[in-house]
Design a binder for these strands. Structure first.
Lengths: 227, 227
DNA sequence: TAAAAAAGTTAGTTTAATCTAACTATTTTT
DNA sequence: AAAAATAGTTAGATTAAACTAACTTTTTTA
């Protein structure tokens, strides 16, 4: 049985070493700032997680997940994303409201509960933010994706997920009227000011990197690569 | 903001002083055994709850709820019973499985969440065990009810709730095929052996006080009193 | 490559909630 | 009303997860 806190550590390590980086290990300081605690606290905790065979760690070394730790962390993320989906689809919460609630719901541990919830939601593959939901074995398919900022002028791309889940960001996304799976045309780029003009459903918007660095897309190349 | 633990104390005090007794105060020892902790622990905690104006308490005195404490405790019970209803109605859990999960879900604090859940379930008045669900203001209507053991031979009574929520009890109730709102006829009583013969849907069952002391009923008298 | 900066660790403290053991107050019984 | 039983309190210890401050190791840079 893992504590609430241990689960949060594993979740953060999964995020830092699987979802947000190709590096499969992370330093104590980075982990501390992700969890919003001091490095000293992390030092102690990773020792404990190492003793429980959830992470690999040696003094002054980096932290990486064992198979067991990876699975536990993935299950926390599975629960989080399924609850987010429930809150949005069944209880009509908006997508900027679901994160904080899911942060609490994710720690309720019961395989049966989460699998029933999965079934109740019709086995969704993606949550409302477009992020993939790990399956009951803790496995996940991470689709090939790029940032909107990597798209070229003239590209027609599809929004598949948002990277920034803060309320401000999601509110802006709502305001300009985008939903997951919408098409965007890259009309032009102003490299001097780092601005991009995009066309969404016929309307033009001028956006900065604050936007383009936080939208995941699939580009035509990838769509082609599939057939 | 109340801690998980403080909420459990308030919930137990509500149960002991509102649902399970007409006494509006409870002693430290009784509260301790209800919470499965030592009296010394309760002594400390009620001091803390008193300082927070959630209970009334003086050294060597009994514990009672303030208005604020009563409302907080009621809200925990509201959340518990709504989640139980959700698990049983929407996720198809059996009624002996829902309690432990609801015990965790009840501590997720968000008025919006719980009111949305209430709406999603169509504003139920009773949970699957037949217990009344407090409303959004923490108020509750406790119907007049008796124990099955108080019924007289010849009475035709209606089961409205179960008192004992342990798995063993609920399994037995399932086994003999009763559901909430079923009618029971009291066929005979054997006072020497403390046994009661009851008729449920045409079938006779001989039951001991272990059963009759844990089933809540409304008797014909009460039904009459209403018109 | 030596000094400076960054990263990480250790030791000792804090807080909430629990415990045990010993003590005190209140209630019940004879 | 005194003795016994029950109920309740206090003091001191424990555990998990955090902290600060001081220290050490590793990495970077000039």
């Amino acid at each position: 049985m893992l504590s609430f806190t241990e689960e949060n550590y594993l979740k953060s390590i999964v995020q830092l070493t699987i979802f947000e980086s190709t590096e499969r290990e992370v330093g104590v300081n980075k982990l501390a700032s992700c969890l919003d605690v001091k490095p000293a606290t992390v030092s102690d905790m990773v020792k404990k997680l190492n003793a429980k065979k959830l992470v690999n760690y040696k003094k002054y070394g980096k932290v990486s997940l064992t198979k067991k730790g990876r699975k536990s962390g993935m299950m926390v993320i599975r629960r989080h994303r399924l609850w987010e989906t429930f809150l949005q689809i069944k209880l009509n919460f908006s997508w900027d409201e679901v994160h904080d609630l899911a942060e609490e719901l994710e720690h309720i541990y019961s395989e049966k509960l989460i699998n029933r919830l999965d079934e109740f939601l019709d086995f969704p593959s993606f949550d409302p933010h477009g992020d993939a939901i790990p399956n009951a074995d803790g496995e996940i398919f991470i689709p090939f994706r790029k940032l909107l900022s990597e798209a070229k002028v003239g590209d027609i791309v599809k929004i598949i997920a948002v990277k920034d889940n803060t309320k401000e960001f999601l509110n802006y996304v709502d305001k300009i009227g985008i939903v997951i799976n919408d098409k965007i045309i890259i009309e032009s780029k102003d490299n001097f000011n780092s601005l991009t003009t995009i066309n969404i459903k016929g309307k033009l918007h001028v956006v900065s990197p604050r936007f383009t660095d936080n939208i995941f897309i699939v580009s035509p190349k990838f769509e082609k690569a599939k057939d």
